[in-house]
């Protein structure tokens, strides 16, 4: 059993939370009821949780190429729901929920 835990810092908001080894950073954020990274499908498919890791080490599971290119992935960009820390991490939010045509219309 690996009981290691790492500190994740969301640079945009200064939010800090703990992520256990083997847990993805989006899941840790949600479990601790923290905010900062937008949450979508939680499966590496929708792209809304896209982040850039500015410092620290992690492993990434397969993510949709629609949202993270090979170059981006090599440059530290990934989907938070598919990133597993192996050290403390500083991340910056890149993604977000798209505008919904329906919701826009409701506001008129």
């Amino acid at each position: 059993m690996n009981s290691a835990a790492f500190e994740i810092v969301i640079e945009d908001t200064g939010e800090r939370f703990t992520c256990a080894a083997g847990e993805n950073i989006l899941k840790a954020m949600e479990r601790l009821q923290r905010k900062g990274i937008p949450v979508g499908c939680r499966g590496g498919g929708c792209g809304v949780c896209k982040v850039k890791v500015n410092s620290g080490a992690y492993t990434a599971r397969k993510m949709s190429r629609e949202h993270v290119s090979v170059d981006e992935e090599a440059g530290g960009v990934g989907l938070a729901c598919r990133l597993f820390p192996i050290s403390d991490l500083n991340v910056e939010v890149v993604g977000g929920l798209r505008k919904s045509v329906l919701a826009e219309r409701l506001r008129h």
């Binding site: 949450v39 979508g40 499908c41 498919g45 929708c46 809304v48 949709s64 629609e66 929920l97 798209r98 505008k99 919904s100 329906l102 919701a103 409701l106």
Partner: peptide
């Protein structure tokens, strides 16, 4: 709101905009 979620009567941004 009620057209989509009859009980909440509120739109849910994730439901409306998260797609693959």
């Amino acid at each position: 709101g009620r057209a989509i979620f009859y009980h909440d009567r509120k739109l849910n941004q994730n439901f409306l905009s998260v797609v693959t």
